[in-house]
Amino acid sequence: MPVYYNLTYQDEPLSIDSIGSHWEQPTVSRPSGYPYYHWMQTESGVGEIFLEGKRIVLKEGQGILIAPFVAHQYFSHRSSEWTTSFATFNGSLANEIGQIVGNAPYLLAEEQPYFSFFEWVETQIQQQVSNPSMDSVELSIACYQFLMQLSRFQEKHSSQKHELYVTYVQPIIEEIETNYREALTVEQLAEKVFVSPQYLSRLFQRFLGMSTYAFLLRYRLNKAKELLINRQELEVQQVAYLVGFKDTSHFVATFKKESSYTPLEFRRLHR
């Protein structure tokens, strides 16, 4: 259960006041809230959060960003074990975070094919382990990127009511989530919604910030990461096949290009 505090000097625009993962989350009650923006995400189990007169259930992969000084309390659902990862943000521009994520008392988000909030936390912890005197400017940039992904998540979900998203993008996402193991191509996917591959990719770029192929690739790689961590008995070749890669060498090269690690290196990091 690693936890670190004050990773950089607070005179940087953005910094991390505290960060941790695999935390066996106890019951917490803060009638006056917390002084910094506080991100918390469920790794396993289920949590319940009460704030702003609402009850929020936080399931695996789901997270919440709570604004400073918002009264809240949280605890495990039905007294079961609840494991979380978290990060709190400060810095010289901490008061401006609201302009990045919107001035709401809280934001809800969850793991996405294009970005993993959990992996971001794990990466910052791994960097702290390997390099305690890490570059504060780089960390400030990483914090900004994290907050921008939260903002992007909100924009994405507001756009999901758009007619074009519902008609063309959503069915393809569901197709990918169901059949990512199969030999899918962008051409085949486009045929399912009766548009050209180019038009479909423009819609994906508009609503998700990436092409259809990039979304499919990212989804497969995220599924591969899940298998590498949770199914230690599987060989890399088996993992590649289970997520839709028919060529192991291509899988390894693609995995390393996207994550900076080979599949085996990634598995060792999370063993």
Rank of each mutant, 00 (worst) to 15 (best):
R268M: 05
Y37G: 00
G91L: 04
F215R: 01
S21W: 11
S85P: 03
Q99K: 04
N131D: 10
V169I: 09
L228K: 08
I66M: 05
N179H: 15
I97T: 02
V46S: 03
N90C: 13
V46R: 14
W23D: 06
A214S: 12
E48D: 02
V195L: 10
E122C: 10
Q149P: 02
T248E: 10
H270E: 11
T185Q: 12
T167G: 03
W23T: 04
V166N: 10
F215H: 04
L228V: 07
F266P: 01
T83A: 05
V121E: 01
H250I: 09
Y144C: 01
L227Y: 08
F146M: 09
L147C: 01
S260D: 07
W120S: 07
T88N: 07
Q25W: 03
F86L: 13
N222W: 06
W82E: 07
K225Y: 14
Y5E: 04
K246N: 13
G61C: 09
F251S: 12
Q41N: 09
G244H: 10
S44C: 06
Q149M: 11
P105S: 01
H250M: 12
M1C: 07
V166L: 15
D11N: 06
V186S: 02
K59W: 03
A142M: 10
L269G: 05
F89I: 00
E81W: 09
L107D: 04
E119K: 12
K54N: 05
M40C: 15
G102P: 09
E81M: 11
I229V: 14
S44F: 06
S259Y: 09
